[in-house]
């Protein structure tokens, strides 16, 4: 069965791009457009991977990450997928328990898929 991914992305163009890429590869994709819906979707559902942006409306990615880390029952596999690339951001993400950190502008679709594959293959 294909891995399920929760994609949290507020930019419509980017969202459409990733939907296309991941659906083509056969991933089961759920999309959230802001921090709060991301939290509620993540808590309700169960995803193999959460691709989390940082600069989000309503609640930023770090806050989402923090909220999810409070849940002691479930383990969330989160990889940051963002265009913020400064050191403090990467550091903070890592400290909050993110598995990886992908800078959107730095990767091609191919590269992104390779990365995601790494995190979804068990």
């Amino acid at each position: 069965m294909a891995a399920s991914i929760l994609l949290v992305e507020d930019d419509e163009n980017t969202r459409v791009l990733y939907e296309e890429i991941f659906k083509k590869e056969g991933y089961e994709l759920t999309v959230a457009v802001d921090g709060e819906s991301a939290v509620s979707l993540a808590l309700r559902g169960s995803f193999n991977l959460i691709l989390l942006d940082i600069m989000l409306p309503k609640r930023d990615g770090f806050s989402v990450l923090e909220e999810l880390s409070k849940d002691t029952e479930k383990k969330y596999r989160v990889v940051m997928l963002t265009n913020l690339s400064h050191d403090s951001a990467t550091k903070q993400a890592r400290n909050l328990g993110a598995l990886g950190y992908i800078v959107k502008s730095a990767v091609t679709p191919q590269k992104l898929l390779e990365e995601v594959k790494k995190y979804t293959v068990k």
């Binding site: 459409v16 791009l17 265009n83 913020l84 959107k104 679709p109 191919q110």
Partner: peptide, 20 residues
Amino acid sequence: SIASHELRTPLTAIKGFLSL
């Protein structure tokens, strides 16, 4: 920092679509 982030967001989409 913010400007570059804002700039990169649409660029990322363009790059992605071009790549596809």
